[in-house]
Design a binder for these strands. Structure first.
Length: 879
RNA sequence: GGGCGCGUAGCUCAGUGGGAGAGCAUCCGCCUUACAAGCGGAGGGUCGCAGGUUCGAAACCUGCCGCGCCCA
């Protein structure tokens, strides 16, 4: 098969992906007797499209699952999306607003219908983009959190938790977004240090006056107490008295509470139980009333002069009014303090007293922490487990109700006489006059928390669930350890009788730009993976990301990185092209069919020749090291290292050395050439297999061309063959490389043109065990045999005892030669001096381990030999 | 305010007690029959700073400086 001169990804990618899917290569079979290995995809938002973070996350998952598939596991990578309650509702509401209508005009049922229509029409763009990336997911098992089955799972677990007393309804301070008009959970609030103001206000007059400091002046309208620390001598006499609240005429008590910080402001704080979580607790302890003075949009509802003002308008208005009354004691502006924002729309969150549904997380979080503590679930990298524990061990109850229409409606009905009935999935809701269902829907993460088993058919005990639960690994960014991972742990352990949802959590970082900066639209440094795939190919995009991904660390990528990855793909392409042009083979058809019957998992490869050259032995030995190394890196999720090892093996060992060394052998023909063709075929076969999980398209195309087989997708993953590890061959080649490199240095320093042939004699090859390779060396560095008129004008000596005498046919650049030798001498001298210093140190020889001392001794011997060699060469130089 | 992490070549990052590395970028020479998306060669680092532990520290400990993230 002829290959084009350069790799063109576009056509190959489309064709290969279709072929993979059509052949059922990604389909999982629960009836298989292979051991299972499954991954559920972190479900992207139905509104979303593929961004660079997905590309990284998917590349890692695909690399893992493709390797497991090659290792003979029955693999399942299950795709799907979540309904993204707030985000999706926002999108459709914006569409409605553009046409001058609103969800309230439409009504709930019609609005939800609209969302479904939008989902069908333009939702799930990302699924097509996943195909471009090459995701080897089982499309027949695609799920959506709002599907009938998953909705049933949601209702089932809600009912179960409710019946166990782990879900309850209560009036609490929750985070409220006045723009989205819904409650948020704690982790949907982002805190930032913002410029605000700290205002000290005098309540009361005369001896009974007390000054409180606050950043939220406007909530004073809802104050129901002033609190001081019980030990604060400044205020002891006031505890138990009352002060009059400005504007309202209400008299509020001064209470003593341990939680007041005497060092903050004046040591006295206003207490607004309905609009501050700490104040709410103080209110609970002292039996204070809670007055809600802001409506759902953050507009003042308290009767009086400020009614109808937005909270941010009310603040300066109230400050001004207080100032007019002479009640402003101090003002500090700007005063930097932490402010919560809605993670969806960035609106300042309003703590708000309201009636919501909560999950009592204490027992669930305990189990989630224990599963990691006792080793049933491994978090990679292990350092991030600390963060996980910090979260699960201090978890607050989870507010799960959302005042939205798009989502799973809370399955609770209220009766005319105040009855509350939680309805299970197979039960009929109570009918009749006066019964109504709770208006709210559940937090999207509530359904996402069920993902590892709801997608496999739970609550039914399906073959998929039996075969593929628990999943093998969960791959996601460390940023959603709390949002999602901890919650899956809680619900998985609870619903599946203590069986964890996954054995390993492999966390990766965020993708950053070439300077390590966070990508952001406002900064203009966001890269679009689709653009990269268009220009450089999916494989290059994947390789660039994987090659930068160390466990738990952020990945900095630039266009240059992707170019480098593209160049690498092209290098592989051309190496294979060279191999095919030179008759590389994976064995005769007879040998191959024999091999496929063998117990090596159908290797599709015939046996290797028994007679191998040192060069062949060397590359095969290097291959074994690479296989071992790459395997270990994959097991530890060290994709950067796995990619780097493969990159260097492919480029340095195979392309730069093996192929160059093989050229004269292949050209010479005969048995050596036949063996070389076979070894080259084998090495490429193995290399393409090793690279296939990360760069599936180009490797599959090349492997097919090389082997005349359909696809490498389900071919066996390489294993180390200890019999092929050959230290002697490696030493021999290292020696050969030293000679070649030294002569090349000499040539470059002397300004000899690369193509210029030079007559030379080589001596000492036998002592260096490379006598057999003289002609190879000559061909690599373009040295001709010495003719009768040979007259050496320069000598290159190499550590190991090889000497190359060259006739440069003219004057040599003595200065350049001296410069090179002097530099080498300085390096050798530095090495020798360092070794001598250590060995001369009695403390070192007495206390350092014997093997270390011996090693330093060896290094000194070698360095001194170098000095002798270089000094001789320098002395031989013309003056 | 509490916690975690980072600081190594121009950039991005490996290296965690015993020879300072990689990729890209830079410089020099080359279109050499697989590949110019390439080949050969070279330069470049007080391992943030200061102490300490050790025979030995980029690595371990302490402090400081700078940066980042998470939580409140």
């Amino acid at each position: 098969m002829e290959l084009a001169a350069a790799y063109q990804p576009g056509e190959v990618e489309v064709r290969r992906y279709e072929q993979w899917v059509d052949s059922g290569a990604f389909s999982a079979d629960p009836a298989s007797d292979r051991p299972p290995f499954s991954i559920v995809i972190p479900p992207p938002n139905v509104t979303g499209s593929l961004h660079i973070g997905h590309a990284l996350d998917h590349t890692i998952q695909d690399s893992i699952i493709r390797r497991k598939r090659m290792q003979g596991f029955e693999t399942l990578w299950l795709p799907g999306m979540d309904h993204a309650g707030i985000a999706t509702q926002n999108v459709v509401e914006r569409q409605l607003a553009a046409t001058g209508t609103s969800r309230h005009d439409l009504g709930r049922e019609a609005f939800v219908q609209k969302v479904w229509e939008w989902k069908a029409e333009s939702g799930g763009t990302i699924l097509g983009q996943m195909r471009r990336l090459g995701d080897s997911v089982d499309w027949s098992r695609e799920r959506f959190t709002m599907d009938e089955g998953l909705s049933k799972a949601v209702q089932t677990i809600f009912k179960r938790l409710y019946d166990d007393g782990l879900i309850y309804r209560a009036e609490r301070i929750i985070n409220w977004c006045p723009r989205c008009l819904t409650a948020l959970s704690d982790i949907e609030v982002e805190h930032s240090d913002d410029d605000g103001e700290l205002v000290s206000i005098r309540y009361g007059d005369g001896d009974d006056a007390i000054v409180v400091a606050t950043t939220r002046v406007e909530t004073m309208l809802g104050d129901t107490a002033v609190a001081v620390h019980p030990d604060d001598e400044r205020y002891k006499h006031l505890v138990g008295t009352e002060v009059e609240l400005p504007f309202t005429g209400r008299r509020i008590p001064v209470v003593a509470d341990e939680h007041v910080d005497p060092s903050f402001g004046t040591g006295a704080v206003k207490v607004t139980p309905a609009h501050d979580p700490n104040d709410f607790e103080i209110g609970q302890r002292h039996g204070l009333p809670s007055l809600v003075i802001l409506d759902e949009r953050g507009v003042v509802t308290a009767h009086g002069p400020f009614e109808g003002l937005d909270r941010f308008e009310a603040r300066p208005a109230i400050v001004a009014a207080l100032r007019a009354q002479g009640r402003i004691v101090a003002e500090k502006r700007p005063y930097v303090h932490a402010v919560g924002h809605c993670s969806r729309c960035k609106t300042t969150v309003e703590p708000r007293l309201s009636l919501q549904w909560f999950v009592n997380t204490a027992p669930l979080a305990k189990a989630a922490g224990d599963a990691v503590r006792d080793g049933r679930v491994r978090i990679e990298p292990v350092e991030l487990a600390k963060r996980y524990f910090a979260w699960v061990d201090n978890m607050h109850d989870w507010c799960i109700s959302r005042q939205l229409w798009w989502g799973h409606r809370i399955p609770v009905w209220y009766g005319p006489a105040g009855e509350v009935v939680c309805v299970g999935p197979d039960e009929q809701p109570p009918a009749g006059e006066g019964w109504r269902q709770d208006e709210d829907v559940l937090d999207t993460w509530f359904s996402s928390a069920l993902w590892p088993f709801s997608t496999l058919g739970w609550p039914a005990d399906t073959p998929d669930l039996q075969k593929f639960y628990p999943t093998g690994v969960l791959v996601t960014g460390y940023d959603i350890l709390f949002f999602w991972v901890a919650r899956m742990m809680m619900f998985g352990l609870y619903a599946m009788d203590g069986r964890q949802p996954f054995d390993v959590v492999a966390l990766h970082g965020m993708v950053r730009d070439q300077y390590g900066k966070k990508m952001s639209k406002s900064f203009g440094n966001v890269v679009d993976p689709l653009d990269w795939m268009d220009r450089f190919g999916a494989d290059a995009t994947r390789f660039a990301l994987a090659r930068g991904s160390n466990p738990g660390s952020d990945v900095a990528v630039s266009e240059e990185w992707v170019q480098g990855a593209r160049n690498f793909c092209n290098k592989l392409w051309n190496a294979t092209r060279f191999a095919l042009l030179n008759g590389a083979t994976v064995g005769s058809p007879e040998e191959r069919s024999e091999a496929q019957r063998s117990d090596r998992g159908g290797s599709a490869e015939g046996p290797l020749p028994t007679e191998l050259s040192a060069v062949d032995k060397w590359i095969l030995s290097r291959l074994q090291h690479t296989v071992a190394e790459v395997d270990e890196y994959f097991e530890n999720f060290e994709f950067a290292k796995a990619c780097d090892a493969l990159y260097h093996f492919a480029w340095d060992d195979v392309c730069d050395w093996y192929v160059e060394l093989a050229k004269p052998v292949l050209a010479a023909g005969g048995a050596g050439a036949a063996a070389g063709r076979r070894v080259l075929g084998h090495v490429l076969d193995q290399l393409l297999r090793l690279l296939h999980p990360v760069i599936p398209f180009v490797t599959d195309e090349l492997w097919s061309a090389l082997t005349q087989q359909t696809s490498v997708v389900r071919e066996a993953w390489p294993v180390v063959d200890r019999a092929l590890v050959d230290d002697a061959a490696e030493a021999e080649l290292a020696s050969l490389q030293r000679v070649v490199t030294e002569v090349r240095r000499f040539r470059a320093d002397q300004g000899l043109k690369p193509g210029q042939r030079v007559a030379a004699t080589l001596s000492g090859l036998a002592e260096a065990s490379i006598a057999a390779h003289e002609s190879l060396i000559r061909s690599l560095v373009r040295l001709d045999e010495a003719a009768d008129d040979f007259a050496a004008t320069a000598t290159v000596t190499v550590s190991g005892g090889v000497t190359v005498a060259l006739d440069t046919r003219g004057s040599i650049d003595v200065a350049a030669e001296r410069a090179r030798l002097t530099k080498d001498r300085a390096a050798a001298e530095k090495e020798a001096a360092g070794c001598r210093a250590k060995l001369g140190n009695e403390a070192f020889t007495a206390k350092a381990p014997a093997d270390v001392v011996a090693k330093i001794n060896d290094r000194l011997t070698a360095a001194e030999a170098e000095l002798v060699r270089i000094d001789a060469a320098l002395a031989a130089l013309p003056a």
